[in-house]
Amino acid sequence: MRLRDLKGKITPADVILLFLLLAISISGLIFIDNVMPQGTEVIIDVNGKQVYMLPLNTDKSVKVKGPLGDTLVEIRDGKVRITESPCPNKICIKQGWIKRGAIVCLPNRIVVRVNSTKDGNRKVDAITG
């Protein structure tokens, strides 16, 4: 059957079916993306309790209250860092930007981690050292 022969035989139902199938496959893709987020969350814990869950792809700065005072966490261009901290040694600030893993501020009991399902988890499950 050639394309020219087919032309007259396509009914409106065929067109509807085609669009429906397309819509289903596209929505399926979106659905899968939502069900399995790809390394996108920044989770902030204070003293072991989760206080924030933020998307890594949205620029934002948040103030997190720890036992010593306020720690400032900045998310920008898919990276996260601590910009201000009341801790004595400022190791958390010196760590700079991260895309995966975690920044831990022990004195102010704050953990900022990137919940990466995309890369980190697939290569290694943990790091020693």
């Binding site: 290569k123 290694v124 499950d125 943990a126 790091i127 020693t128 050292g129």
Partner: peptide, 21 residues
């Protein structure tokens, strides 16, 4: 099995910090 990376004691960069897995 679980995969564990060993941190490079002198990493070339912050992202390439694994010596071995």
């Amino acid at each position: 099995p679980w995969m564990v990376g060993i941190r490079d004691p002198r990493p070339v960069s912050a992202t390439e910090n694994i010596l071995a897995a």
